[in-house]
Design a protein around this nucleic acid. Structure first.
Length: 301
DNA sequence: TTAATTTGACCCTA
DNA sequence: TAGGGTCAAATTAA
């Protein structure tokens, strides 16, 4: 199952996008202050401590206020523009510029909500089930599986490896179309299998840093039977290699993600598209071209 | 030379 | 027992 979000009113969406960047930068500034305070905590005199705390509180409080205002704007626009969800095929084109794994990465890196309900409410998304070429609205959650299992861990477990997320990703139309688009992580292919009932084999990847950093992230990539230009990518496990080998997105502006492959991996080049987090957070509007994204709804972490 | 991919065999689960 | 997931030796690419 996948989440589709409509982005319509490009004008207000850009304004909000800009404001959201400001909020994000305020939050990051606050975090910086906290870190700075933390490092100098033992020798800080009470007066200086008070000043620092005041500044931190004010920064986060300002960010909070600004965010509330943005949400109000967003909600009022949503009420005015009840739009019909557009289906995955349209999204394929957008995915050439931005693909779901990056949203997952963004949340992981920049502290997305740990509450899927909160995220759900904020985005007011519409869930859509995509089954091959068919479509139907659903209100179920994004695929999760393997939460339970036997209590005796074994070396080669499959069913209780934690959360699983499935997303659709557009295949490249040029170059090596066999490769799924880069998702800003480096993956090593460790297997490929013919799957019963599937026209195309399923490829198995794990994080390149699995051994070095004990990173458990894995993904499966498979072309859809009825749409060879779309990959179904299933992510399992979260990356634990961020702190040590983080791709450069974290060093960029917090609200932007470079989509070209900044690490090695498959050398798929998309140019350098930039994705605003606010684009995703406040993406419903009135006039303009539909822009649809698909990304995992639940909190990937 | 090193790292990544391929692929047949093995293991695990339903 | 079948099907899916993983391992690891062999092969290929950089």
């Amino acid at each position: 199952m996948y989440v589709c979000i409509n982005f319509k009113n490009m004008y207000s969406y850009k304004k909000i996008s800009y404001q959201m960047e400001e909020v994000m930068s305020m939050i990051f500034h606050g975090m910086k202050l906290v870190k700075s305070l933390e490092s100098s905590l033992p020798e800080k005199p009470p007066e200086s401590l008070l000043t620092s705390l005041d500044e931190i509180v004010k920064t986060f409080s300002d960010a909070n206020e600004r965010l509330k205002m943005l949400l109000e704007i967003k909600n009022s626009e949503t009420a005015l523009n009840k739009t019909k969800p557009v289906i995955v095929s349209v999204a394929n084109q957008m995915l050439m510029q931005m693909e779901p794994g990056l949203m997952q990465e963004y949340w992981l890196r920049y502290g997305g909500s740990t509450s899927s309900q909160g995220t759900e409410a904020m985005f007011q998304t519409q869930l859509m089930a995509v089954d091959g070429g068919g479509e139907r609205n659903l209100t179920a959650a994004v695929e999760r599986s393997g939460a339970s299992g036997s209590s005796t861990p074994r070396q080669r477990r499959r069913k209780d490896e934690g959360e699983e997320q499935t997303v659709l990703v557009a295949a490249l139309r040029t170059g090596n179309t066999d490769l799924p688009p880069d998702d800003n992580h480096t993956w090593r292919k460790y297997g490929q299998k013919e799957i019963l009932g599937s026209r195309f084999p399923r490829a198995y990847y794990r994080c390149t840093h699995q051994k070095l950093y004990n990173c458990p992230a894995k993904k499966q990539v498979q072309r859809l039977n009825d749409d060879p230009f779309t990959f179904r990518v299933t992510y399992r496990g979260s990356h634990t290699c961020y702190n040590s080998t983080a791709p450069t997105a974290s060093s960029a502006t917090p609200s932007t993600i470079p989509i070209s492959s900044v690490t090695t991996g498959h050398s798929v080049d998309y140019g350098l598209a930039v994705v605003d987090m606010a684009d995703v957070m406040f993406g419903s509007g009135g006039v303009g071209t539909n822009m649809d994204f698909i990304f995992p709804k639940n909190d990937p972490s």
